[in-house]
């Protein structure tokens, strides 16, 4: 019974939860401002969750976690920068950015999906490097693109767009502040959480439609899917489209909450962080649920949020970035070396 419980929870999740609890206790005893910390946890959870949810379609369709997420992310960045270029503000800017990002992301996802169908079994490696490549191509794009908005180009003489574009007064924390309120010193980013909930519901419905179920059948056992008259490649392609479109919208939500658009090399490792978040939530490389994505996003981000101030007090050095690298890559390694369950029967 005990063993069963452990298996269900998963050892990594257990360790991380205990560690988190320990850090929270430490933060209390150091007398750190807990209200702020909890607010930050909620915000970080909300701003990352769509990027993590974007992993679900490809995992379910058997293409593994979407290491090619940058394909979607850059589309979101294009949407967001266009909104500023057109001098849009507030919800107009936000919805414009989302409206541009999603179709662009879908197209990018379609192209990426065509590639994925040709490299079955090696999606992770190929996806990672293709993601890296597209980020560096976009670096050239950001340098050369004919943007004019003074908020985005370098003020004097530099080439192209700035490394970070400030969203102050455009759509900074638009969702976070929507209907937000404060309880016991904890600010609840209501709009952001509502948006997250909406995404979850939409994804939940989608995964239970005939198409969504087909996707999951394809991922669970491609031979079974073929025998049931399903076109495996079609559903894998669709998964990539949905995932990249979610990634595109996800980075817009992320950016508005963060208050900056990060260009150039910033999207490089974002896929890795999303992959590790969902794995921390207990997903495997073959199966993932919305709950796992949410739990993972919360645990991972809560840990990072609280580690920074605690480490600062305890040892006077910034250990949070190091921790992020170790935990996120550690969990991926753990998933890679686990005995594969299921998989392609061929």
């Amino acid at each position: 019974m005990d063993n069963d419980f452990l298996n269900k929870l998963g050892i990594p999740r257990l360790i991380i939860s205990l560690f988190l609890a320990f850090l929270v206790a430490a933060a209390f005893s150091f007398g750190l401002p807990m209200g702020q910390i909890f607010s930050a946890m909620l915000t970080r959870f909300g701003m990352n969750s769509l990027l993590v949810l974007a992993m679900i379609p490809t995992i379910q369709a058997g293409a593994g976690p979407n290491f090619g997420l940058p394909f979607g992310i850059i589309c979101g960045l294009i949407g967001a920068t266009l909104a500023i270029e057109l001098d849009l503000r507030g919800f107009t800017a936000f919805f414009f950015a989302i409206g541009v990002s999603i179709p662009l992301g879908a197209i990018a996802g379609w192209l990426y999906g065509l590639l994925l169908n040709r490299v079955k079994g090696q999606e992770m490696t190929v996806g990672t490097y293709m993601g890296f490549s597209i980020v560096s191509v976009m670096c050239i794009f950001w340098l050369m693109a004919p943007y004019k908005s003074p908020e985005m180009v370098w003020p004097y003489g530099g080439d192209g767009l700035r490394v970070t574009v400030v969203l102050d007064g455009r759509m900074e924390q638009l969702l976070d502040r929507f209907l937000s309120f404060t309880v016991n010193g904890v600010t609840i980013p209501t709009g952001l959480l509502l948006a997250t909930a909406l995404c979850c519901v939409l994804l939940w419905i989608f995964m239970r439609t005939r198409t969504g179920l087909a996707m999951s059948v394809v991922g669970s056992n491609p031979r079974f899917a073929e025998a049931s008259g399903l076109n495996v490649n079609k559903y894998r392609l669709l998964a990539s489209v949905v995932s990249c479109a979610m990634g595109a919208a996800g980075i817009v939500i992320y950016s508005q909450s963060y208050g900056f658009i990060q260009l150039y090399q910033a999207p490089l490792y974002m896929a890795l962080y999303s992959v590790s978040a969902i794995l921390i939530g207990g997903a495997s490389l073959q199966r993932a649920t919305i709950t796992q994505a949410l739990i993972g996003t919360f645990l991972f981000n809560a840990l990072l949020v609280i580690a920074l101030p605690v480490a600062n007090v305890a040892m006077d050095s910034d250990i949070s970035e190091i921790m992020r690298v170790i935990i996120s890559n550690g969990i991926i390694l753990y998933a890679l070396t686990r005995k594969e369950v299921g998989g392609d029967a061929r």
Partner: peptide, 16 residues
């Protein structure tokens, strides 16, 4: 990055 990505993709493709 591109060379690695393409080489890996070609390899996977050929194997498939």
């Amino acid at each position: 990055y591109g060379v690695i990505g393409i080489a890996l993709a070609l390899h996977a493709w050929q194997r498939l």
